[in-house]
Design a protein around this nucleic acid. Structure first.
Lengths: 219, 219
DNA sequence: GGAGTTCGCGAACGGTGTTCCCGAAGTCTA
DNA sequence: TAGACTTCGGGAACACCGTTCGCGAACTCC
């Protein structure tokens, strides 16, 4: 029937019989989060997470089918930290507020934007956020696909902002270095002009940009 | 002065003296592209790319400072395949056209969306695209930051579409499976209603969504 | 022709995800 | 209570990864 593996949240956490497991899925999630917060995403190895729990590396496979599951659990755990305020009646403003909540979580967990962008995952907590977004869109016309599209793009746009702001700060710096070089050669007048502006990029207003994007998307 | 490494395009390709290198940066880029097109991103290992060239694995480090450089070269090479048509005068329509060009390239190279999203990189070819976008925005008010923001978001939005459509098709399927489960429980009426729509998501219109986003962003 | 420099790359190091296997520990049945 | 049964924990091993080291060969320049 299904040629893809079931998501971890559809698989039973522990067996009913036999020796009971000493650790739980939330405990493992917490350990992975701690490792990632401390050392970044690529410190999240099976052995490191196991060491955080004080266990052997192979034991994790009793709780999780591989590293991918670990990352999925982390994403959804983070989604649980998104603040969901009651709707005010203005869909755009309320969606921007959700975006701010997402951004705040991504600021706390600098590894999150990358995961949100490359492996969009829906777990229990993310479903709660999705449900909230659907509530904000209740009075708005549009089919199921377009509503899901709003949700996906809200996530992606905020993650893009957060990634450039906090997660990979040296990458924009590298791009800027190359841009400066191109500007110096003078072969691209528009780029030269771009970098001769008054202030050297005074931190663009993400909130305003997100509001404009959502306004357009809901028009 | 700079605490980040220079991008590869600012480093000289080959030394002026000594034994001349037998291969070139474009050759290595082409080999990496071939490996990635054939087997996906995580087949792009130093040893695999070297084998594609018929050389030893360690030789690559004469041309590239590490795997990251390889990925940067791949992204920029792909950017060289984006079709840039002359402006028609309608900024939104012209930006959508650029988006279509990006999407077409990402369809050809299924590994590209992930790289575009997680390691935004500016090389010579990408600068050409940026320059084109700046030309489209020439008559439009806005400071340097907002122009770069338009460019970054255009890339990110298209990459998000392409990722969900082609690059990781089993991931949306997994999310859909979990969503169906949540809908079946009935705890989230809005989600249950969402999946009871007429057609089961008849492929959302990316072009229209992108046009709306850009319209809002440029408003 | 000699000095100087770079190139190619085999070998090695430490780390990774994952699988195998088996003794230990618990639950369930008789 | 005794035994059958099932799962759990985790050491060991496998294949692969990115990267560094070092050295002989190849080439340029003086």
């Amino acid at each position: 029937m299904a040629d893809y593996d079931e998501p971890i949240w559809l698989r039973p956490e522990r067996a009913a019989t036999g020796r009971p497991a000493v650790r739980s899925r939330p405990e493992i999630t917490a350990a992975a989060l701690a490792v990632a917060d401390r050392g970044g995403l690529d410190m999240v190895s099976m052995r490191n997470v196991a060491a955080e729990l004080g266990t052997g590396g192979a034991s994790l496979y009793r709780y999780v089918s591989g590293r991918g599951d670990l990352l999925d659990l982390m994403v959804d755990a983070a989604a649980g930290g998104v603040e969901l305020r009651p709707p005010t009646g203005d869909p755009v403003a309320d969606l921007v507020a959700v975006g701010e909540g997402l951004y705040a979580v991504m600021r706390r967990h600098r590894w999150l934007p990358e995961l949100v962008l490359t492996r969009p995952t829906l777990g229990p907590n993310a479903v709660e956020v999705l449900d909230h977004v659907l509530a904000l869109l209740a009075d708005h016309p549009g089919d199921a696909g377009s509503r899901l599209e709003v949700f996906a793009l809200l996530n992606a746009v905020v993650a893009t902002f957060a990634l450039n702001d906090h997660a990979a700060p040296d990458r924009p710096a590298r791009a800027a270095a190359y841009l400066a070089h191109v500007a110096a050669t003078g072969d691209h007048p528009r780029i030269t002009a771009l970098l001769d502006g008054p202030a050297p990029a005074p931190a663009p207003d993400h909130r305003a940009a997100l509001a404009k994007i959502l306004t357009g998307l809901l028009a």
